[in-house]
Nucleic acid binder design. Sequence first.
DNA 1: CTGAAAGCGCTTACAG
DNA 2: CTGAAAGCGCTTACAG
Lengths: 330, 330
Amino acid sequence: MTIGIKDVAKAAGVSPATVSRVLGNGPVSSDLREKVEAAIRSTGYRPNLSARRLRSQHSRTIGLVVSDIRNPFFTALSRAVEDAAYQAEMRVILCNTDENPAREAMYLRLMQEERITGLIYAPTRTTAERLERMSFDFPVVLVDRAGPPGAHDSVVIDNQEAARRLVAHLVAEGHGRIGGLFGKTSSTALERHQGYVAAMTERGLTPEARFVAPNAEAAAEEVGRWLGEADHPRAFLTSNGLLLLGVVKAARARGLAIPGDIAMAGFDNDIWTELVGPGLTVIEQPVAEIGRTAMQLLFERLDHPDMAPRKVVLSGRLIERGSVGARRVA
Amino acid sequence: MTIGIKDVAKAAGVSPATVSRVLGNGPVSSDLREKVEAAIRSTGYRPNLSARRLRSQHSRTIGLVVSDIRNPFFTALSRAVEDAAYQAEMRVILCNTDENPAREAMYLRLMQEERITGLIYAPTRTTAERLERMSFDFPVVLVDRAGPPGAHDSVVIDNQEAARRLVAHLVAEGHGRIGGLFGKTSSTALERHQGYVAAMTERGLTPEARFVAPNAEAAAEEVGRWLGEADHPRAFLTSNGLLLLGVVKAARARGLAIPGDIAMAGFDNDIWTELVGPGLTVIEQPVAEIGRTAMQLLFERLDHPDMAPRKVVLSGRLIERGSVGARRVA
DNA sequence: CTGAAAGCGCTTACAG
DNA sequence: CTGAAAGCGCTTACAG
């Protein structure tokens, strides 16, 4: 049916082995190579990657397992990973876990069955805790969520430090009471929560934290309730861009001015943050660099399997806009 | 090295064929089935998908080729496709072309080499024109960009009609002069441009269209220049959400009030549109439905290869917010 | 540099 | 229901 390497060999008058060598840039005399290339063109031959992978034992495939590609952080991460893979002539299999451990387990199993070359992985919190005890047949690089230094390479930002910086900034702008809104599923959100609590406590301030599903709707709903309470904070800090958007939404719904009536700051310099309200003050994460670094660690690990695990900690950058300090209002 | 079906067979005291039948839910007596399942558990056996695909001639793989996953339309589309694939126990290979025909050609070749089951595909304009003459070994469903009814199934919205609706709305709100900003790479943007031109002309108005790379930065730059010209439009229409964001950015940079100084409307009910400025008036596309429908057409095509190609045209929905009519200003 | 042969890990007619 | 055998389409030692 479909044209195979034998058909090409016959058309070129050589052995299948020679065709294979031409495809793999092996040692072939130039006249045979030309004949084979002509035969490939005339037959319209396309190699069968399943066969090649089975025989060569190399899948040239990167697995990417994240919670939800619609989270702009992971959208950008996936592009960085895909670009690096494209350059290395490898493919990417993208998996969304939706923070659902069952779905995650199913995808990890798939990764094994695909015999992937390596995995870039943002584990759910439940799984992150058991990661030490799990073993994979391929190297794993954790991104965004690493926990304590462990068995795997990882690339993260210093979440505690970044959250503290956000608190410091809000306090410097005159806010003593700061409500914290955090995603309840990721270890990243938890670390940011810890940084927030520590920074508040150090200053003798009282942390007021709430946890929600990591999307704008859940955040808007929770903050809507919060703002309905008699005595609510006038400033909010969130653990990601989607939650920040939720705060804006809730503020709007109640007709509150930003930052006059209500101030806010959070994580992720998403494309819209500059344009919502007076501009939102955020910690920008070097997302593309995280992706590139993860791929680099993966390649280095493949070359040196016995190297000790490395944890790369990048740092966020505070971008001050109008949503915190009254001075900065447009 | 890695455990194969033979090892499991040995451990269970059966033939490899029986193990294979257990894995594939073939006819096996319940006592043998139990033995095999125990052996699978004790050995930690994981099937090798490359081998299975090679032998069975089924890849159970959907290809998804779009311009850029960072475009929220394609982000949402990819989730819908992935969810449908997950339910059908298939995997998805995601490819970003960046509107680059060379990269696109490389990925289409990859799709052949992967022997994918079917392709969900948003072609670049250059390639869309040659699509009739190209042949694939798998069914293709075009999404977002279809051109004239042709050889492949497709799912689109009526772009011309939607663009006309946007013009009608802007005119009804008192705008006679409307600048149009369109992506220069996709056929979709072109169709929206045609609708815009037609609707303007019918009303005796003069179309003023410009074309840019389909991202917010390029749009902001172009509109920035436009607003710097002595005699510029006071209302803008854009062919997607990113371009609309660019218009907002340019307006902000010049300190223009929306919609007082400058009005705007466009496509895509992206998450932020509600929160930028006074809220942006947009045509919402049923993205998830587009993705689901595409997968459904694909499955039906696999069942009935000889059915005539079908074109499903969904329609957009106008969401009126504050960026057009002065009456609606917050 | 080149070819004949073996084999990657499965599935699937074919017999029984 | 079960097993022995063939073979999916490649790559890669092994000889020459």
